[in-house]
Simulated scan of single mutants.
Amino acid sequence: MRADLLPSPHSQEIPAPQAGIVSETARSWAVGMLMAMLPGPARLAEQVLFAAAARAGRTETEVAQAMVTGSRGAPVPADIEQALDHAVRASRLPAFESRRSGPALMPTREDAEKALGRFFDARVRLRAAPQNPEARRAVDDAVFTLYVLMAKPSPYSAVNEALQYAA
């Protein structure tokens, strides 16, 4: 990867996270969220998290915590949001796309239909109660399942692919 887009953690010193602010769970969750958005391996997600933290002038822990609280409906600071957006876009450049040597394994149509059903049910629940954190998590879980099943980088493309595949 180009160093100017996604600097490696070894290229500059990273300040140690302050004890008690963010657990390793928040960092793991943030890496998982980035893996779903990219999609890619954990190493790429960690590089994106590092790049976003460096661009925002924050620690990785602060960025991870902002991502976790943002997934629960709290506003994400503008500098972190912009830095994450830039880092994700940089990681999606054609030079960074995965090179598949053959066709991807596809789920069964039944699995795709079940995942779509869970997604649409969760969306109905969220529309009925937009402030309900359980409904929001259900939508997030259903979208993540579609990301993984359909190997697509965005909710829109994952749902479209699943709809076409199940039809």
Rank of each mutant, 00 (worst) to 15 (best):
R27C: 08
A26Q: 11
A162R: 00
L44W: 05
N132Y: 07
L49S: 03
R89I: 07
P75H: 04
V76D: 07
A158M: 01
A128W: 10
A95I: 10
N132F: 04
F119D: 02
S154C: 10
A151W: 05
D140V: 11
A74E: 14
T59Y: 00
V31Y: 02
V124T: 14
P153H: 04
A138Q: 03
Y156K: 15
R43D: 15
E97Y: 05
R58C: 13
A45D: 00
R109Q: 13
R92P: 04
P130I: 01
E161G: 11
D141W: 07
F144V: 13
A104Q: 09
D4H: 12
V31L: 07
V159Y: 00
A42G: 10
A104V: 12
I14H: 11
A78N: 09
A122I: 05
A167I: 12
Q47W: 09
M37R: 15
G70Y: 00
A104T: 12
F120K: 10
D121T: 14
F96M: 15
S8M: 12
D85M: 14
A53F: 01
A138T: 00
E46H: 05
L6T: 11
R136W: 08
I80E: 03
G102H: 07
R92M: 13
R2E: 11
F50Y: 14
G117E: 13
D121H: 09
P107Y: 03
A142E: 01
P103A: 13
M37Y: 10
A122D: 06
A83K: 06
